[in-house]
């Protein structure tokens, strides 16, 4: 007698837990052959709200963690992803990619995590500055995480688009709420399992599946979200984003990139989610010949 295959239940990831959407709704995306990918949670605005609460709660601890420890944790995500490579490749192929592209996508995702893991304890040295000012002050600017970031992941990839946006956000000490690709959601949920088993504190990354059009507006207008990163080139979505983020003057970063290109990674993606704090310290303008410091 043949064995009945056990199908995976794809759930969302909020605050380090895997609940079903509070709305109880599902959708069933299909691949090009018309095969059903699975029953995927159709998250609601209340899931967005709950995720933001979880992300805000996690922000304190994550942003105060030693930078090198954040780097170690990002590296750990890469390690865990490496260990489950085969599962991701299988899912990406099932969602319509060729074997070659799927292997490439997972490899780049792993390498990209390691790339940003390396930057964790280095980007402040590169970005921060001591500024010459026309008074007797020691004036310096340092970069600090913005807080809770909304991430609207790339729609055309399942894994690499999500990783490429999420990694620089959390490397910089932010926490985030990710809206996964609507049509290719499988890897986002499996990636949440990787995060859950790799020392990332609950709430640092929250991943929701469903319709971008339904989740993006409450995320963008949420007063407790400090910034949005968006991947894509949908003019209408970008315009809506700009309008609804104006409420609390969130910074939005729009990327229209080919994430499969191994060069699509840089320190400026970390900087996009940092606030610059400039301090005027009333000692003296340090560095002159007679400076006492």
């Amino acid at each position: 007698m043949g064995r009945l295959e056990v199908l995976k239940t794809y759930k969302v990831y909020i605050g380090g837990k895997f609940p079903r959407t509070e709305s109880g709704r599902y959708y069933t995306p299909t691949n090009a052959k018309g095969e059903q990918l699975g029953n995927i949670c159709l998250s609601s605005r209340k899931d967005v709200r709950n995720s933001v609460v979880a992300a805000r709660k996690a922000f304190g601890g994550w942003s105060e963690r030693a930078a090198n420890n954040r780097g170690q944790i990002l590296y750990r995500i890469a390690e865990m992803l490496e260990g489950r490579k085969a599962q991701f490749i299988e899912e990406i192929i099932f969602q319509g990619a060729t074997k070659k592209d799927a292997e490439k996508e997972v490899s780049i995702a792993i390498d990209r995590l390691i790339y940003y893991a390396g930057w964790c304890d280095k980007y402040t040295q590169v970005l921060s500055s001591v500024n010459p000012v026309a008074s007797a002050h020691f004036n310096f600017s340092v970069h600090e995480p913005m807080g809770v970031i909304g991430v609207v992941a790339d729609k055309h990839t399942s894994l690499i688009g999500l990783v490429s946006l999420m990694a620089p956000v959390i490397a910089g000490g932010n926490t985030c709420v990710v809206i996964a690709s609507e049509g290719l959601p499988l890897c986002s949920v499996t990636f949440a399992e990787v995060l859950n088993s790799s020392d990332v504190p609950g709430g640092v990354v929250n991943i929701l599946t469903g319709k971008v059009g339904e989740m993006m507006p409450p995320l963008a207008s949420h007063m407790d979200v400090n910034g949005i990163v968006y991947s894509g080139d949908d003019k209408k979505e970008i315009k809506d984003l700009e309008e609804s983020t104006a409420l609390n003057m969130k910074r939005i970063s729009v990327y229209s990139a080919d994430w499969m290109n191994s060069d699509e990674q840089d320190i400026y993606k970390i900087a996009d989610c940092q606030e610059v704090k400039t301090t005027w310290h009333p000692i003296e303008n340090i560095g002159g010949a007679s400076s006492s410091y």
């Binding site: 967005v48 933001v52 207008s221 007063m223 409420l247 609390n248």
Partner: peptide, 9 residues
């Protein structure tokens, strides 16, 4: 207002 709020305000 229809918007989720933040304790910052």
């Amino acid at each position: 207002t229809g918007n989720y709020q933040s304790s910052d305000y």
